[in-house]
């Protein structure tokens, strides 16, 4: 008798969820690279749906939430699993201001709300991720707001409420400010290689959802395609 005659089934257990909040700058200065960003985002969705190089369960575990921001913060995708054949909403740039702090506040609130939802519904979850992508400084630049959220993010990361990373795009990026807004966890994109970044992000999410919380994992593979090397971190 072979395994094909085993008539058992899996217990209908909930999958352990992993929330990834993408916070993307679509202010006017992103205009030269917005199409590349949209293409990379579409491929990111496909990679997860078709488990390209990823554990099959990733699509049942990874919840993606998307915010776009310029002078306002726009929720482009509520956090949930990808639907079959889903294509991300197209991001459009507009000539306007860059309300980075407000966007980060919205993302942090979303993380808190979703964690409450997981707890209320008894679903196990990994530490959520916030990916903050911008090509410049917050504009208008309000130091008191920046200092306030810098401190909040520092304390939140210390309390392991979420993990945040920043991605600087283009030559006008202020590395110092981006580091302040991401608890010093910021990298600069090589050119406009969003494709390599999202390949890396999907692979990293695949590694994370196949790990145990507390386990040290290495997500540096492929990162030199678009940035300098990451250190190991705790899930």
């Amino acid at each position: 008798m072979g395994v094909e005659r085993f008539r058992g089934e899996s217990a209908p257990n909930a999958e352990m969820k992993c929330l990834c909040v993408l916070v993307m700058d679509v202010s006017g200065s992103m205009e030269p690279c917005i199409e590349e960003l949209n293409d990379a985002l579409r491929n990111f969705f496909k990679d997860i749906e078709y488990a390209r190089g990823l554990p099959e369960s990733t699509k049942d575990q990874l919840e993606i939430c998307i915010y776009a921001f310029d002078e306002e913060v726009m929720l482009k995708r509520n956090p949930c699993l990808l639907k079959p054949g889903e294509v991300p909403a197209k991001l459009n740039q507009r000539g306007s201001t860059t309300e980075s702090v407000a966007a980060l506040r919205a993302a942090i609130q979303m993380v808190e709300d979703r964690k409450e939802f997981y707890k209320d519904t008894g679903q196990p979850y990994y530490r959520p991720w916030i990916v903050f992508m911008t090509d410049g400084e917050p504009y208008p630049y309000r130091e008191n707001e920046i200092a306030e959220i810098e401190e909040q993010i520092r304390l939140d990361e210390k309390a392991k409420k979420y993990r945040i990373m920043g991605l600087g795009v283009g030559e006008n990026i202020s590395e110092k400010t981006l580091r302040r807004l991401t608890n010093n966890n910021a990298r600069k994109l090589k050119g406009t290689n969003f494709g390599a970044f999202f390949d890396w992000l999907s692979n990293s999410m695949g590694i994370i959802v196949s790990s145990k919380p507390g386990q040290k994992v290495d997500i540096s593979a492929g990162s030199d395609e678009w940035m300098s090397k990451f250190d190991d971190f705790e899930v």
């Binding site: 899996s10 217990a11 209908p12 257990n13 209320d120 008894g122």
Partner: peptide, 20 residues
């Protein structure tokens, strides 16, 4: 082995949540 063989995160319709 528990995800396949154990009821550890099962939807409880009455409670409206997953329970172990």
């Amino acid at each position: 082995c528990e995800r396949a063989s154990w009821e550890c995160s099962i939807m409880d319709i009455e409670k409206g949540k997953f329970v172990d």
